[in-house]
Amino acid sequence: MIERVIEWTRTRSAPLMHVVIAIVFLMSTLLGALVLRTQMVQNSFEAAEVKQHISTLTQDIEDDQAKLDQLVASLPDKADEMGMVSQGGSVTIDLNGYQQSGESGAQ
């Protein structure tokens, strides 16, 4: 069978080397396409896994935020239970006349 192919290539205008080069090129192209496809499938699975992990972490953050909001909302009740008194108003400090130490009074 191989002898027939070799004899056929000798009788044609394309020498055997051209046929071999073409076959090697086609096989390497096929192998390259297979490797790329395999890599793409692997990357797809990894991306799906990462998305699932992100979704789980997002849910955990939302749960923790809900717990934090609940604790913040219960702070006034806990303070009342401990006998703490809420502050009547807000306190402000006026720093308009403030001078840093080391500055002289003359400006």
Rank of each mutant, 00 (worst) to 15 (best):
I6W: 03
F25M: 07
Q65W: 06
K67D: 11
T29W: 07
W8I: 14
F25K: 09
E103D: 12
D80Q: 10
Q42L: 09
T29E: 11
D63G: 08
F25P: 01
G102K: 05
T38V: 03
L57H: 03
Q59F: 06
G88R: 06
T9V: 06
I2N: 06
I61P: 01
D69I: 07
V35P: 02
R4A: 04
E3V: 07
V41L: 15
I61G: 06
D64Q: 13
T38K: 09
A66T: 14
A22H: 10
Q59W: 05
E7N: 07
V5R: 07
S13P: 11
A73N: 08
A66G: 04
Q87A: 02
T38M: 03
V85A: 08
E3Q: 09
L16R: 07
A66F: 11
G88E: 12
Q39F: 00
E81R: 10
E81Q: 09
Q59H: 06
V85E: 13
D60S: 11
V91Q: 12
G97F: 11
Q99N: 08
A14G: 04
S101P: 07
Q65Y: 08
M1S: 04
I21A: 11
D94I: 11
E46P: 03
W8D: 15
E7Q: 06
T38I: 03
L30I: 02
M84W: 10
K51D: 08
P15M: 08
V50G: 03
T92P: 03
I93E: 02
D63P: 03
Q52P: 04
D60C: 08
Q52G: 12
Y98E: 05
R37W: 05
K67P: 03
M27G: 00
L26E: 11
M17A: 15
N43Y: 08
S28M: 07
R37I: 01
A106V: 10
S90V: 14
V50M: 11
I23F: 14
E49L: 08
P15V: 08
V5T: 05
D64A: 15
R12N: 13
T11N: 13
A14K: 07
S13I: 12
T38Y: 04
Q42H: 06
A106L: 08
E62L: 15
V24G: 01
N96S: 13
I2K: 04
V85Y: 05
D64E: 14
D63T: 13
S101H: 01
Q87F: 00
V20D: 07
E7M: 04
M27F: 04
S55I: 00
K67F: 11
T92S: 13
L71E: 04
I54G: 02
L71D: 05
T92G: 10
G83K: 05
F45S: 13
V5G: 02
M27T: 09
V41E: 12
